[in-house]
C-alpha cells in the first residue's frame, strides 16, 4: 500500500483529503505545516505528498524546496493543493519540483486524476 502525507493547516481539508485518498487505497499520514511534514519525511519518505501552499510556520513552497534537497527527497511525488490558482504560482511550484497541481476547490475526480498522472494510483 502506498503512503501519502497530507500537509494542510486546515483540519477539515485534511479530513476530506484523507477520506478521498483512503478511498484510493492509500495509507495516510497528516501534518499541519511544512516543518512538521519535513520532520515526518526525514523519518520515512512517503510515496506521495498532497501539499497546501499557505500555512503557518513553514509554507508549502519552502517545504518543497527543503524536501528536494534532502537525501531521497526527490522520490516523493508532490501534488500541490491550494487556493493559489494564478499561473505564476503554478509555474513556480513546477520549477521547485512539484509534480502536479490542484487548484482548490477539488473533488474526488480531480484528486484521482492528478494522482493517477503522477503514478500514485
Amino acid at each position: 500500500m502506498k503512503h501519502c502525507l497530507v500537509v494542510d493547516d486546515s483540519s477539515v481539508i485534511r479530513k476530506v483529503a484523507r477520506r478521498i485518498l483512503e478511498g484510493f487505497d492509500l495509507k495516510i499520514s497528516e501534518a499541519e505545516n511544512g516543518q512538521s511534514a519535513l520532520a515526518l519525511c526525514k523519518q520515512a519518505m512517503p510515496d506521495g505528498i498532497l501539499l497546501d501552499w499557505n500555512m503557518p510556520v513553514m509554507d508549502g513552497y519552502e517545504f518543497l524546496v527543503e524536501l528536494r534537497s534532502l537525501p531521497g527527497g526527490d522520490a516523493p511525488k508532490v501534488v500541490f493543493c491550494t487556493t493559489e490558482n494564478d499561473v505564476s504560482y503554478i509555474t513556480r511550484a513546477l520549477r521547485a519540483g512539484a509534480d502536479e497541481y490542484v487548484m482548490k476547490p477539488f473533488d474526488k475526480d480531480i484528486i484521482g486524476s492528478k494522482f493517477a498522472e503522477v503514478g500514485l494510483l
Binding site: V87, I90, T91, L94, Y101, V102, F106, I110, S113, K114
Partner: peptide
Amino acid sequence: QRGLPVRMLV
C-alpha cells in the same frame, strides 16, 4: 483539472 496534466495546462 480533469485529465489534463498541469504542464500541458501551463
